[in-house]
Design a protein around this nucleic acid. Structure first.
Length: 272
DNA sequence: ATGACGGAAGTTTTCCGA
């Protein structure tokens, strides 16, 4: 089973690229962020022709997330329970790995707040949102031990994830406060799939449009796929696909992909 | 250089992203 996450920075603009990418990379589940469209504008038909169904949690102009899958998902939840938020940032669903009934995995696709600048109102919102996410995830992990949290986290784990850690020190996505919250998510029993494997140097998932950031390898790794304890030993591969960043009119983010071997046993239980 | 590049709203300029 393959799952991927991609911040597309406007699905309206990027739809042809997403469909092209899915054809070359027929993943089972794709979490999309920054759709920048309302549910009624979601291109359901185009995805259906590509063999995918979608659950959309859209919003006008900003944010907006979706889960696109080959097999329909169930038990869809939008945003963080018990955290009041007027922005469309999170969508969760049960994703079967095949057509069988029963066990699958819980997938959460998320677009974390940017935060703009430490000390700003938006940064305070980001901190409150991260706390709300963690409180909710603690119980979600008990209900759904086989869980994947993926999306645009807008947080780097450490300086390896940053092209210029000196210049970016204490800047947004790189502050100790944000990284503390990210580690607190890890402490709930999640694992960064990317770091389970040897990765190329300068493995980034986002590059600034300005100053030829991509061509000069000036980026950050802020898009992540975290897997729960019960799925840890099923992760067989994880990679960042930089090829769409070389398209004309690309998103500033690249897709991140994870491969799970779900025909294995985990903690004595069949995962499927 | 409170900038650049790109998207959205919507009309000429501003907000936002990271």
């Amino acid at each position: 089973m393959k799952l991927a996450t991609w911040n597309v920075n406007s699905l309206t603009v990027r739809l042809p690229q997403v469909l092209h990418w899915l054809k070359a990379n027929p993943v089972d589940v794709l979490a999309l962020q920054e759709l920048k469209l309302t549910d009624d504008k979601f291109p359901t038909q185009a995805f259906a022709q590509a063999g995918y169904v979608a659950q959309c949690f859209g919003q006008k102009t900003y944010n907006g997330v979706a889960i696109v899958s080959r097999i329909p998902v169930t038990h869809v939840v939008k945003n963080i329970l018990q955290f009041a938020d007027d922005m469309a940032r999170v969508i969760s669903a049960n994703c079967p790995s095949d057509g069988c009934d029963g066990a699958g995995i819980r997938v959460i696709g998320a677009y974390f707040p940017n935060g703009q600048e430490p000390g700003s109102d938006k940064f305070e919102y980001k901190m409150a949102w991260l706390q709300g996410l963690r409180d909710w995830l603690r119980t979600e992990l008990k209900t759904h031990p086989h869980l994947v949290l993926m999306g645009d986290f807008n947080i780097t784990f450490d300086d390896v994830d940053v092209w210029d850690p000196v210049g970016m020190k204490d800047q947004i996505c790189c502050t100790d406060e944000e990284r503390y919250h990210l580690q607190a998510l890890i402490a709930l029993g999640l694992h960064d799939a990317h770091r389970m494997f040897g990765q190329p140097p300068k493995s980034y998932s986002w590059w600034d449009y300005r100053n030829n950031g991509f061509r000069r390898h000036r980026g950050m790794r802020i898009d992540h796929i975290l897997v729960s304890n019960a799925l840890k030993h099923q992760v067989t591969r994880c990679w960042i696909d930089k090829t769409p960043r070389q398209n004309e009119r690309p998103s500033d983010h690249a897709p991140v992909v994870v491969e799970l071997d779900l025909l294995q046993y985990s903690d004595g239980q069949m995962v499927v």
